[in-house]
Simulated assay, not measured.
Amino acid sequence: MRVNGKVVTPSGVIRQGCVETDGERITAVAEYPSVRDGHWILPGFVDIHTHGGGGHTFTTGDVDEARAAADFHLRHGTTTMLASLVSSPFELMRDATAALSPLVTERVIAGLHFEGPYLSTARCGAQNPAHLRDPSIEELRELIDLGGGAVRMVTLAPERAGALDAVRFLTENRVVAAIGHTDATYDQTCAAVAAGAAVGTHVFNGMRPPHHREPGPVYALLGSDEVICELVADGVHLHDGTLAFAATVTGPDRAALVTDAMSAAGMPDGEYELGGQAVLVADQVARLANPDGTPGPIAGSTLTMDAALRRAVGAGIAVPDASRMASATPARALGLDHQVGSLLAGWRADLVVLDDDLQVVRVMRAGAWVD
């Protein structure tokens, strides 16, 4: 099969190009001079932080819900994703791991991401404070063993007791340790990075704000050559100027676009839930419901990866760089580079075809077009 258009490759854009596939694999990426004004052809998006979408959620561990959420994001160009869960009792974490791990074997999802429960109460955002606690090696060991490779990332706050030991344990077991929902100092954050933490969870959000005399986690994460920084490009979590600044500091090889989407992504405004807490969505912005019914803190997003790419380009990031932030860089964060995230011969044939307005035209996953 051959797909023609403006092909975004790791070395640049082939304006008159084609991607050739055979079965599940890319066989060639080359110039094709007869092409005129074709669509954009980008690698399939890789979202390492999403809680659901299309009215469905990953957070309960329900298999049918997870399949439907993954299918929703696939139709928006996300061909590889982690199922992100929020802070919860250990019993739910264990049950969700057992239930969702088979979906990794089936390649519906690429793995599980536990965003919590080892987070800061002061910076918990939409995480349920009743479930927050110090990291437990025993809990992590059981989840990793139970998942059989399905647990791919855990977000924790490095200032919590036992956090550095947990970071080392996760790293030794080939699970990505991410820093997020944290009130840590700059030095505490740097200590976690030195221990092996490799991702910053939605940098700026759920973190102590940076200050010129106490830079906190934001400067430590943006400034570390060893950390890939998640950025939620929806114009709500980050001002476009902040997005552009952060991407300039890190470069596209250390900035990963993520959705942090909840079930309300792609759905009408209204009332939803996240981790057992009520969420109000108005003008496509999701916020926790305060006890009096008014909107509270941001509760994930209603974002899709194609919309995140458009926002990044609108903020001044070039299409090839935004594509890398949406595909190659998050794939590398998970150790999935050389498999997905770039259009290269021998890699899985995951691609998204976009028109000149960067709207999705077609999506291919593992060599097959998605309906």
Score class of each variant (00 low, 15 high):
V3I: 15
N4H: 08
G5T: 13
V8Q: 09
G12P: 13
R15L: 14
T21Y: 08
I26N: 06
T27K: 05
R36Q: 11
D37P: 06
D37R: 13
W40N: 04
L42Y: 08
H49A: 11
T50P: 00
G53I: 11
G53M: 13
H56N: 15
G61I: 08
D64N: 15
A68Y: 03
A70K: 00
H73F: 10
R75Y: 01
G77R: 03
G77F: 12
T80M: 07
S84T: 15
L85E: 02
L85C: 09
V86W: 01
P89K: 06
E91A: 15
L92H: 03
T97K: 11
A98E: 12
L100G: 09
A110L: 12
A110C: 15
G111K: 01
E115T: 05
G116Y: 10
G116S: 13
Y118D: 00
R123M: 15
Q127D: 12
D134W: 01
E138K: 09
E142N: 04
L143M: 12
D145I: 08
L156R: 04
L156S: 04
A161C: 01
L164E: 14
A166H: 01
V167A: 02
L170Y: 07
L170M: 01
V175I: 14
Y186G: 02
D187S: 13
A192L: 01
A195L: 07
G200R: 00
G200W: 00
V203A: 07
R208P: 02
P210L: 15
H211F: 09
E214N: 12
L231K: 03
G235M: 07
G235L: 09
H237M: 06
H239Q: 14
H239G: 08
T242H: 11
L243C: 05
P252M: 04
L257I: 02
T259N: 11
A261K: 04
A265S: 10
Q277T: 03
A278M: 02
V279D: 13
Q284G: 05
R287C: 13
P291W: 05
L303C: 13
A307P: 01
R310V: 09
R310D: 10
G314R: 10
V319S: 05
P320Y: 12
M325Y: 10
M325C: 14
A326L: 08
S327N: 09
A331R: 06
L334K: 07
L336M: 11
D337R: 05
L344K: 15
L344M: 13
A345H: 02
A345P: 10
A345W: 14
V352E: 02
L358W: 08
V361A: 12
M364G: 00
R365H: 09
A366C: 03
A368T: 14
D371W: 02
